[in-house]
């Protein structure tokens, strides 16, 4: 599956830099947020702010980089 990323600003109150993730039919799959300075070990990581459909989870993961996020999303979509 080919994913498309589109930069976006997210109004979380602290972390604003984010990415919208679309599938090849331009359907919105997820919103990723780039974590700011206050997170100690997680600063600079990407957080699954919201996931839709198969990406919906109570346990939103964080990823070291966008590549890792895309890999997780693809794997999750391929599952089930």
């Amino acid at each position: 599956m080919t994913l498309t990323l589109q930069p976006v600003r997210v109004a979380t109150g602290s972390d604003e830099e984010g990415m919208l993730v679309f599938d090849e039919k331009q359907r919105l799959l997820a919103v990723l947020t780039h974590l700011g300075d206050q997170y100690d070990g997680l600063t600079g990581h990407w957080y699954l702010e919201a996931g839709f459909g198969r990406l919906e989870t109570h346990d939103q993961p964080t990823f070291a980089d966008l590549e890792a996020a895309e890999k997780w999303i693809s794997q999750r979509l391929a599952k089930r």
Binding site: T12, G13, S14, L35, L42, Y47, D59, Q60, T62
Partner: peptide, 14 residues
């Protein structure tokens, strides 16, 4: 609390 560590961090900041 059944939320992520990121969320805990944010609500503590708030």
């Amino acid at each position: 609390l059944g939320v992520t560590t990121v969320h805990v961090n944010r609500v503590l900041q708030e």
